[in-house]
Amino acid sequence: MTKELKLDPRTKLIIVLCFSTLGVGTNQILVLFFISVLALIVAKLFKVDLKRSLGKIKSLLKVLILIALVQSIFSPGQPLISVGNFNLLTIKGLEKGLQFILRMFIVIVSVTIMGTSTYREIIQGLVQWKLPYDIAFMVALGIRFLPMIREEIQDSLTAIQLRGIDIKNIPLKERINIYSYLFTPILVETLIKAERLAAAIEMRGFRAYDSRTSYLQLKLKSIDYLIIFLSLGLIILIFIKIYT
């Protein structure tokens, strides 16, 4: 498999929607696991650089793992490990934690699959689905803004440490206090950027005419139809299997 699979962004959107619906719609670990593997295979087909994407959200991953741990520790049920009278880890807790991790994994992989289309293609896909252009544009802008916010956070973290505050080595309570300071610059900078962007697109006559013509036209090929059909078939099948 050296050739990269090139699909319509709408097809990818449907695949991703199927994955995430399944991910949210089921509690069964086996199914979740199956979907995770499937999502991984699809991501590989699209040549997603998973290592790089995961590396980018390292700190988020840490938080997710922490949440999973907390969830599994504080769940009632049959004990797996217990200290004295206190149940440290229960089967139910372990299940919950695993479910959470798998779900998050599915969502993250899905998002990276979407990332293989340019944002221009995604807008065009949504527009051709008869979504109003304004809304499609907003969705795409939102996607574009995410990495920018990440950069802002990084910059602000550096700047506050340059003030001589050692974030890593202060008590938790104060650390939370310091983190709250970070909200101000991140929010303000993002709002300023958004405002500038709004002014810039207004100046270029955004929404001056009701309908827009576009050079880029997407066409669903037979492979797209096949994959859409397969994904929808799969999701229906799984749901029937779960609920009967």
Partner: peptide, 14 residues
């Protein structure tokens, strides 16, 4: 002490 070219980057409070 480092002064950023864009000083907004180093403001944290209201």
């Amino acid at each position: 002490g480092y002064l950023f070219q864009n000083p907004e980057k180093q403001f944290f409070t209201n």
